[in-house]
Design a protein around this nucleic acid. Structure first.
Lengths: 340, 340
DNA sequence: CCACATTTTGAAATCGTTTTCATAACAAAT
DNA sequence: ATTTGTTATGAAAACGATTTCAAAATGTGG
C-alpha cells in the first residue's frame, strides 16, 4: 500500500504539502497540487484512516445503541440515522443491547477507547449515575429515551401523555377492565408510559388490577402469548394497552384464530404506527411518532456537539405524537351502554 | 486521558511490559502484572483504539453493505450478523446503499482506507469487474447475492430454483396470466429469480407478457401501486409473483379495499417469510430463507478469511429454502377447471 | 531598493500503541 | 563452572498520517 511518503517522493514534494492537498487546505500552488494529484492517482493512494484518526483525534464514527434492529421502530430509526450521518460524513456502528445492562456498558466503552466520536442512546436501561461518567469521554445524546438530568440532550415525544391519551381513548370506547403489556421493564420510557396509563385509569375512576400487567412483551410471538394469558383470566378483560404494534398484531392474530372478535370482545391499542398496524384486520389504533425527524435531529444535535469546542446548553426536544384511531378500538355499540 | 506511558511510569515498568499485560501475552511475572493492573485501574486507563489499529493493522470492524435496514429481511440479516460479529469481538458498520451503485463503491472505500478488516456485501448492484479490484484491500464475502466468479465466497439460497418452484405453484393453482413484480432490477439475484420465473412459464407452456413486469416494487406502498396497475389491465391477471412479502401485503391490502377476493381473483406469492406474510388475511404464500444461519455463516467465513494468512479456496455455500403454501394461493375451486 | 505582509514549502515533532531486537536473569544440564 | 535454554524486561523503531514551527519565496507600498 502506498503511503503519503510515497506520494511525496513521486511528486518531489514533502509529506506536509501532500497532506495539505488531501485535506483541501490553502497555501498550495495549483501546479504542485496537480503534481500531487497525479502522483496519488498513479499510486492508487488512499489515506490510511487509522493514522489520521490517531493524529487528528477524530474518528468520524458514531455508535448507535438500540435494543434490536428487528423491531421496526428501531429499524426505521437507524435507517434515518445512518442516512443523515452519512450526509455529515460519519459512519454508524450498530450496537444492539437486547436490553441488557452489561451490553449497554460494553458498547459505551467504544467512546472511552476513542473508537467513536459520539454515542446515540436509543436504549437506556442503566441508571444515570452509571452512564454519567462516560460523558467525560465524549458526547452522548438520548433518542426516544428520557432521563431526569440536565447534563444530556434528549429527543423524544411525551410518552407519558401519549399513553394517557391512548388509555383514555380505550376508556371512552367503553373499556373498563384494561390490561397493560409492556416491553423491557427496565427502561425509563417504559416507566413514563406506565405512569400515563395509570393516571388515565385514576382520572376515569377505574382501578388497575396488577395481575393484568404483562412484561417483556416485545414481538408478534409474545403478543400471541399475551392473548392466551388474557383468555385465561376469570374476569373478562375488555381492553389492552400494548407498547408495540407487533404485540398488538400478535394478539389480533391469536384472537382471530380463537374466534374472538376485535374490538367487541377486546379493544387493542398499539404503539409506533408501524405498517403492520395499518395492514392488520382490524387495523390497529396506535400512536405515531415522527421517527425520521427525531432520528435526523438526534444526529444533527450529536454532530454539533462533536464539532463544538465548548459545551452548549443541553437541549430537550419534545416532538409531537398523534393518536391514530382505527378499527381495533372502534366499539360504537358499546359506547352508549358503558359509562361506569 | 492516561496513556500507556503514564501507566508504565506509575507502575515503574516499561511500555512494552504494559502492552504485554493489555494483550494478555506471556512472559510477565504475576507480581508485575498486578502492579500494572493496579496502575491501569488507578488511572482509569483504556488503550486508545486508533493507535492500536495503526500499529497492528487490524480494526476489528466489519462493514455490512445492504440496500436498507427497513426491509425486514435485511433487518434480520444485520441483527444476526451484529450478534455473531460481536461474539467474535468485531464491530459492525451499517452501510445502506439504497441500491445505488455509487453508494456501494463509496462504502467499499472503507476497505481501501483500512477502516474495516472485511466487507459483507448483501447488496450488489455493480458489475463484478468494478468490485474485483477492491479484493486487494481485504476480504469480501457475498451474502444473499450471487456472482459468477470463483474469486469470492458467497452464501445464499438457489433463487433461481426457488422462483421456479414458486411460479410452478402458482400455475398448479390454475393461474395462467401471471404478473411479475421485482425490486431493484440491477442486482444479480433479481436476474436469477427472473430466470426461474420464466423457465417455469416455459415448462408449463405459458407465455409471459412483458407488459406485466413491474420494476422497483420494494415495499407495501409499492404493492398498493402494483394492485392499481394490475386492475388497469384489460386482460385479467390471475396471479402475481412478487419478490417481497411487503409488496404482496400491499397488494392484498389494496385488493381488499377494492373488494377483490384473494386468491380467487388474484393469487399472490411473496418472498422471505416475513412475519407479515403470516399475519395478513389471507396469509401469504412465500419462500422461507434461513436468514439467521446465513448471516452467522457469512460472518464466520469472513472472520476466518480475515484471520488467515494465505487465502483459502473460495466457498459457495447454498442453503435450502422452503416454499410455504398459505391461503393467498389456495385456489381449490379453480384447480379442477384450469388446465390449458 | 527597502520594509513588511502574505503565500508557499518542508523538517521534525507528535499521536499512542505494538513489534522487533537485544540483553538480563534464572534454571537445568553438562 | 560453563553451556544451553527459557523466561522476563526494556529501548527503540515502526505504523502513517497531521500539526507546529521556521524559513524561503513572493508581492506590495512607499
Amino acid at each position: 500500500m502506498a503511503t503519503i511518503e510515497d506520494v511525496a517522493r513521486l511528486a518531489g514534494l514533502s509529506r506536509t504539502t501532500v497532506s495539505r492537498v488531501i485535506n483541501d487546505q490553502p497555501y498550495v500552488t495549483e501546479e504542485k497540487k496537480e503534481k500531487i494529484m497525479d502522483a496519488m492517482q498513479q499510486l492508487g493512494y488512499v489515506p490510511n484512516s487509522s493514522a489520521r484518526r490517531l493524529r487528528s483525534q477524530r474518528t468520524e464514527t458514531i455508535a448507535v445503541l438500540l435494543p434490536r434492529v428487528t423491531n421496526p421502530f428501531f429499524g426505521h430509526l437507524i435507517e434515518s440515522m445512518e442516512r443523515k450521518a452519512s450526509e455529515y460524513g460519519y459512519q454508524v456502528i450498530v450496537c444492539q443491547t437486547h436490553d441488557k445492562k452489561q451490553k449497554e456498558l460494553d458498547y459505551l466503552q467504544l467512546l472511552k477507547t476513542k473508537q467513536v466520536d459520539g454515542v446515540v442512546m436509543a436504549s437506556l436501561t442503566n441508571d444515570w449515575d452509571v452512564i454519567e461518567p462516560y460523558l467525560e469521554s465524549g458526547p452522548i445524546v438520548l433518542c426516544n429515551e428520557y432521563m431526569d438530568s440536565d447534563q444530556v440532550s434528549m429527543i423524544h415525544i411525551d410518552h407519558r401523555q401519549a399513553s394517557y391519551d391512548a388509555t383514555a381513548h380505550l376508556i371512552e370506547q367503553g373499556c373498563t377492565r384494561i390490561a397493560y403489556a409492556t416491553g423491557a421493564q427496565e427502561t425509563h420510557i417504559t416507566r413514563q408510559r406506565k405512569e400515563g396509563f395509570l393516571q388515565a385509569l385514576t382520572d376515569f375512576n377505574l382501578a388497575f388490577d396488577e395481575n393484568l400487567e404483562i412484561r417483556n412483551a416485545l414481538d408478534v410471538k409474545d403478543g400471541q402469548g399475551v392473548f392466551s394469558f388474557l383468555q385465561e383470566q376469570e374476569e373478562k378483560v375488555d381492553g389492552i394497552f400494548t407498547g408495540s404494534d407487533e404485540v398488538a398484531a400478535g394478539i389480533i392474530y391469536a384472537a382471530s384464530q380463537s374466534g374472538f372478535t376485535i374490538p367487541e370482545d377486546l379493544a387493542i391499542i398499539g404503539f409506533d404506527n408501524q405498517m403492520i398496524s395499518l395492514l392488520m384486520v382490524p387495523a390497529i389504533t396506535t400512536v405515531r411518532q415522527p421517527v425520521e425527524e427525531m432520528a435526523m435531529k438526534t444526529i444533527q444535535v450529536l454532530v454539533e456537539k462533536i464539532k463544538k469546542e465548548q459545551p452548549e446548553d443541553e437541549q430537550q426536544i419534545v416532538y409531537n405524537y398523534e393518536l391514530i384511531k382505527r378499527k381495533s378500538t372502534e366499539r360504537m355499540s358499546m359506547k352508549e351502554s358503558a359509562s361506569s
